[in-house]
Design a protein around this nucleic acid. Structure first.
Lengths: 274, 274
DNA sequence: GGAAAATAACATAAAAAATGTGATCTTCAC
DNA sequence: GTGAAGATCACATTTTTTATGTTATTTTCC
């Protein structure tokens, strides 16, 4: 029996669970009674929320409430990253898709930027897509015009993708026409990443690709990360969104790399070679 | 507005679409009007069915109806195989699961028999599961207690799984505690399979496993297939359902292989070492 | 052993999915 | 071109599924 108040229930469960996650992240612990009161639902509903969040690995249930799962503190998972800068990523993806030709062997990495291209690939087939991204694999494996090759590897929850020796070796032994990848940070002309196994895998992709495209939204500039992945100049093309700052753009062009700026209003594209 | 007759509508859509597929497979063509009349639904519903089946690659829509998709004629896909001998496979899977121990590295092949084990694995974790089966990967990747390793490889629609050099190499370079696999046919003590790349992959799995379990339902006995995979005696254990014929069972035991018979009524198990 | 918490079992409201109907748009044969 | 069959669209209605609450039962902890 639902609460008789007229509040909109569209996405109510999602909102409530997101709220619980935030609460848990902030305080390390949430109590069932407190949540039930604060969110104006029954304790049973909170129980179910916590069960669900626990099974997804966010929380650990304890008597009377739940603690934040240690792993959830460490990694900023795809689920939260994918929600950021969505319009930028869509614009970049749309521009990137214009470089895909029928018959191409395409490398896609596990980035959310490359992930934004997935939906647009089937209509550009026939293609062969090689990827370590689970969502790309599941989405494209049903498409008649797309041959899907998985790199395999060890599954990493935080990235929704596969890495490790198996993935890196597979990438080394294939040969692609075109690579679409992204990076966590761009700092003084270097692509950087916080995870070593990611770096190893992406380098293997780069070595095996005839044409390399880097997809970066404006928020990546000036960020730092521990491991150097590759110089930006190693890419044949960089696609950025139009909210990039003039100075970041000037820096990019000073590196001698070809840059395409994807416009967010429309499909209009402002192309420029540095 | 639904038909006011009281027929059970549970799975009605699935049943109807299966029926349409069979019809298309049998005659090469189905007409919308005929189907609407035969299935006692509106033409619009048939339209929607055909759209859906076409997008899944089963049919090609043409004016007034649909033709069978050429590819659908060639492969007996998992989707149809998975529907056969379900109770047998469930019983075998339940028995197979009793051999899984916490901490095990488990190889699972792409067979529907091994697939029946998937749902039972999380509660037996923590585990590492290595597989080429897409449904196993997607189902298990969300489970906290399961480390998922994909072999990678080229995706084959007909098997909903990955094969080829990448998959086989990955299998060769790992080491599992226990392997669960099946085969298309068992003929005179030999496991056989129609596809060569499947054979190569499965052999790699067998080489890399400390303990090898073969899952076969009674329907596999006496079938033929082109490629020899391995002698049944190479397995440490064979699990069959209780509808196996006495003579098939005697043959199995004559090979000197340990056999477990999974009962379909219950979880009762009749164990016997030959 | 008893109170608090967790789970189970069921009822109901709300949302989502499936289907039908009639209107409108396309296509194809003539 | 034109008209009719077929396809698609838009919306209403029904069914199914999901989310939730309530109450009863079981488990856990002190």
């Amino acid at each position: 029996m639902r609460k008789p108040n007229g509040e909109s229930d569209i996405g109510a469960q999602l909102a409530r669970r997101t709220r619980i996650r935030e609460e848990a992240l902030a305080h390390g612990y949430v109590s069932i009674d407190t949540l039930a009161a604060a969110l104006n639902v029954s304790a049973m509903t909170i129980h179910r929320d916590l069960d669900s969040l626990a099974s997804e690995g966010w929380l650990l249930k304890v008597r009377g409430g739940a603690r934040i799962h240690p792993a959830a503190l460490l990694d900023t998972t795809v689920r939260s990253r994918a929600e950021r800068n969505v319009p930028e990523k869509r614009a970049i993806a749309a521009q990137a898709l214009t470089h895909v030709r029928q018959g191409h062997v395409v490398f896609l990495d596990e980035s959310t930027s490359a992930g934004a291209m997935i939906e647009g690939l089937p209509e550009r087939g026939p293609l062969t897509v090689v990827t370590n991204s689970l969502s790309a694999i599941t989405r494209l494996s049903g498409e008649p015009g797309i041959d899907v090759i998985s790199t395999g590897g060890t599954f990493r929850h935080g990235y929704d993708a596969f890495f490790g020796m198996i993935a890196t070796d597979a990438a080394s032994r294939l040969q692609a026409d075109i690579l679409f990848m992204s990076t966590t940070a761009i700092d003084r002309g270097q692509c950087c990443h916080k995870s070593e196994e990611t770096v190893l895998f992406k380098r293997a992709l780069m070595k095996s690709s005839a044409f390399k495209i880097l997809l970066v939204d404006h928020s990546k500039f000036g960020l730092r990360a521990l491991h150097r992945l590759a110089p930006v100049a190693d890419f044949d093309l960089v696609i950025v969104d139009d909210r990039i700052s003039p100075s970041d753009r000037a820096d990019l062009e000073a590196l001698g790399v070809t840059v395409e700026v994807a416009s967010m209003d429309d499909t209009v594209v402002n192309q420029r070679t540095g």
